[in-house]
C-alpha cells in the first residue's frame, strides 16, 4: 500500500466525518433513536430487574445491529450520480475509497456503540463477565458492521429505493457478529470466548477481502 493509497483513504474518511459533523445525522438522529429503542424494551417486557439484567447485553447488541446499520444509510454517505462521476474522474483508487468509507463508518459506529452501552448499563445493569472482552468486541463489531454497510451501500447506490434496502441486506449477513459479540461477553460462558473472538476476527477479515475485491466493479456506475 503506497502513501498515495493511504492519502486517498484518509481524504475519503475525513470527508465523510466532516459531512457527518456538519449534518449531525448520527449524533442527532441515530443515537437518540437507538437510545429510545433501549427504553422501549422494559416498557414492553416489564421492569423486573433480574430479567432486564439478563437480557441487557443481548438487547444492547440487537440495537447496535438494527440501528447501527442506519449509519450506513445516513444521508451524508449517499452520493448522487454526479458526485460519483466526479469522484471517479479524480482517479480515486476504489479500494482506497472503500477503506476510507469503512473507516469513517467504523468510527461513527463505535461512537454509537459506546453511547448505547452506557444507556444499556444505566437502564438494565448489564451482566457482563468481563469489561475487558467488551473493549475488544465493540471495535470488532463496529468494523465488521461498517464493512458490511459500506459494501451494501455500494451495491444499492444510485438506485431508487436502494438505501431502504441496505438494512435488509446487512442484517442477515451480520449474524456472526451478533452471535460473536453476545457470546464473547456473556458471563455464563466465560472461557469459550476466545473461539468466538477468532470467528469475529475472521469475519471482519473476510469482509475486508470481499470489500477490496468488489470495490472496482461496484464503483463503476455502468
Amino acid at each position: 500500500m503506497s502513501d498515495r493509497f493511504w492519502q486517498q483513504a484518509f481524504a475519503v474518511a475525513r470527508r465523510d466525518l466532516d459531512r457527518e459533523r456538519r449534518s449531525g445525522e448520527v449524533f442527532w438522529v441515530t443515537i437518540p433513536f437507538g437510545a429510545i429503542a433501549l427504553l422501549l424494551v422494559p416498557l414492553a417486557v416489564g421492569i423486573n430487574q433480574d430479567v432486564l439484567t439478563r437480557i441487557g447485553t443481548g438487547m444492547l447488541f440487537v440495537v447496535v445491529m438494527l440501528f447501527g446499520v442506519l449509519t450506513a444509510v445516513r444521508r451524508t454517505s449517499i452520493e448522487t450520480p454526479e458526485q460519483r462521476d466526479a469522484i471517479a474522474l479524480l482517479g480515486v483508487d476504489p479500494v482506497a475509497e472503500f477503506t476510507g468509507k469503512a473507516a469513517a463508518g467504523a468510527v461513527l459506529l463505535l461512537g454509537f456503540e459506546l453511547v448505547m452501552a452506557a444507556v444499556a448499563l444505566v437502564l438494565y445493569g448489564l451482566d457482563i463477565g468481563s469489561w475487558g472482552w467488551m473493549l475488544v468486541v465493540l471495535p470488532l463489531t463496529a468494523v465488521g458492521l461498517a464493512e458490511l454497510g459500506t459494501i451494501s451501500g455500494a451495491i444499492a447506490a444510485s438506485t431508487d429505493g436502494g438505501p431502504a434496502l441496505v438494512p435488509l441486506l446487512v442484517t442477515p449477513l451480520a449474524i456472526p457478529l451478533l452471535l460473536g459479540a453476545t457470546q464473547t461477553v456473556s458471563v455464563e460462558r466465560n472461557g469459550g470466548n476466545l473461539a468466538w473472538l477468532v470467528l469475529m476476527t475472521t469475519v471482519v477479515l473476510v469482509l475486508a477481502i470481499i470489500g477490496v475485491a468488489t470495490a472496482r466493479p461496484l464503483q463503476e456506475t455502468r
Binding site: I151, I155, A156, T159, L169, P172, L173, I175, P176, L179, G180, A195, W196, L199, T202, V203, V206, L207, I210, T214, P217, L218, E220
Partner: peptide, 23 residues
C-alpha cells in the same frame, strides 16, 4: 453487476453464519 456481487457475497457469508449458528 450489483446482484452478481450480492449473489457471491451472500453465499460466502452464509459460511460464517452457518458456523456461528451451529456453534
Amino acid at each position: 453487476r450489483r446482484s452478481a456481487v450480492l449473489g457471491i457475497i451472500g453465499l460466502l457469508q452464509l459460511i460464517p453464519v452457518h458456523f456461528s449458528v451451529t456453534w
